[in-house]
C-alpha cells in the first residue's frame, strides 16, 4: 500500500510539473504585458511586475506604430474579424450541404469527388500561392479582405465537407428511405431532418474553422499589405518594427490581444475542440 501511495504522489508531482511548464509561456506573456519596457530591459522577460503598466494595453490596442501606421493593433484585429467570421460561416454552411449531398445522396463519381476534397486538406499552401495570386488579380480582389474571405472559404470547404460528411455518414439509411417515402426532397430533408441533428458537428466545425482562419499567417502576409493585413501578419510586422527600440511590454499586450479570441473560443468550446481533433484525425 505504501508503494501505491508513493507512486501516486510521484504521478501528481510529474503531472503538476508538466502543467507548470506548459503554463510558463502564457504566464510570461501575461506578466510582461503589465511591465514597462525599461523594467524588462533591466531584468529579463521573466519576472513579476514592479509597477503595473496597464497602459501597455491601451498603447497596443490604439496607439502603437506598426510600420508607418500608428493605430495600434485595433484595425488589424478588425481585419481578422472581418475575414474570419464570414469565411467561417460560409465554409461551414457550404461544407454542411456538400457533406450532406456526398454522404446521403449517392451520385456518379461521388467517391472521386470526395477523394479530391480530402486531398485538399493535405495539399500544401505553397502549391496554391501563385494560382491564388492570379485569381485574386483577375477578379480584382488583390489586397482586400474579401479576397481573403474567398480564399479561406474555398480552402475551408475541404475541412468542413470532410467533417460533415464523416458525421452525416452515420445517419441511418432507413431514415433517408422513410423521408423519401414521406415525399421530402433534397432541401426539405436537409433542413427538417439533417440540420436539426447537426449542432454537434456544426459547433466543432465552426470552432475549428474560426481558430484556423484567425491564426492563419501565410495567406495574410502574401495577399495583403499595410493596413489590410490580419493580426497575425501585423504581429510579425510589429516585432520587425520594434527591433531597434525594444517595446516588449506593449508587444506582449498585443500578443495577448491577438491570441485572446481563439483562447476564449477554446476556453468555452474546448470540449468540442477535442472532438474536432479526434473526428478529423480518425478517418
Amino acid at each position: 500500500m505504501r508503494d501505491a501511495s508513493l507512486s501516486r504522489a510521484l504521478l501528481y508531482a510529474v503531472a503538476f510539473l508538466l502543467a507548470f511548464l506548459y503554463l510558463i509561456p502564457l504566464a510570461v506573456v501575461l506578466l510582461n504585458s503589465l511591465r514597462t519596457a525599461e523594467e524588462i530591459v533591466q531584468t529579463s522577460m521573466i519576472g513579476w511586475p514592479r509597477v503595473w503598466a496597464f497602459q501597455n494595453y491601451t498603447a497596443a490596442w490604439a496607439d502603437f506604430c506598426i510600420a508607418q501606421t500608428c493605430s495600434g493593433i485595433r484595425p488589424y484585429m478588425l481585419n481578422s474579424a472581418l475575414v474570419t467570421l464570414p469565411a467561417t460561416l460560409l465554409s461551414t454552411l457550404l461544407g454542411a450541404v456538400a457533406g450532406y449531398a456526398i454522404s446521403l445522396w449517392r451520385f456518379k463519381g461521388d467517391t472521386w469527388i470526395f477523394a479530391l476534397v480530402t486531398l485538399g486538406v493535405f495539399l500544401p499552401e505553397q502549391m496554391r500561392l501563385i494560382p491564388w495570386t492570379i485569381v485574386l488579380r483577375d477578379v480584382g480582389l488583390t489586397n482586400t479582405l474579401a479576397g481573403l474571405v474567398m480564399i479561406h472559404t474555398v480552402q475551408g470547404l475541404s475541412f468542413t465537407t470532410l467533417f460533415c460528411r464523416n458525421y452525416y455518414i452515420a445517419i441511418p439509411a432507413d431514415l433517408m428511405k422513410a423521408a423519401k417515402i414521406d415525399g421530402a426532397g433534397f432541401f426539405r430533408i436537409f433542413y427538417r431532418i439533417v440540420l436539426p441533428l447537426s449542432p454537434p458537428i456544426l459547433i466543432v466545425t465552426v470552432i475549428w474553422q474560426f481558430t484556423g482562419i484567425w491564426n492563419e499567417f501565410l495567406y495574410g502576409v502574401t495577399f495583403t499589405t499595410g493596413t489590410q493585413q490580419p493580426v497575425t501578419a501585423a504581429l510579425i510586422a510589429l516585432s520587425a518594427s520594434v527591433a531597434d527600440v525594444p517595446q516588449h511590454g506593449v508587444q506582449s499586450a498585443a500578443v495577448v490581444i491577438a491570441a485572446l479570441p481563439t483562447l476564449l473560443v477554446y476556453l468555452f468550446g474546448g470540449r468540442y475542440f477535442v472532438r474536432g481533433l479526434t473526428a478529423g484525425a480518425v478517418k
Binding site: 491564426n215 500578443v255 491570441a259
Partner: peptide, 23 residues
C-alpha cells in the same frame, strides 16, 4: 490538466513563435 496541455493548440504559430523567441 487536459485543458492546460491542450491550450497551446488554440494559439497561432505566430504567437507561439514570438513568445518562445523571447523565452
Amino acid at each position: 490538466l487536459r485543458s492546460i496541455f491542450l491550450y497551446p493548440m488554440a494559439v497561432s504559430f505566430v504567437v507561439t513563435g514570438t513568445v518562445w523567441s523571447w523565452l
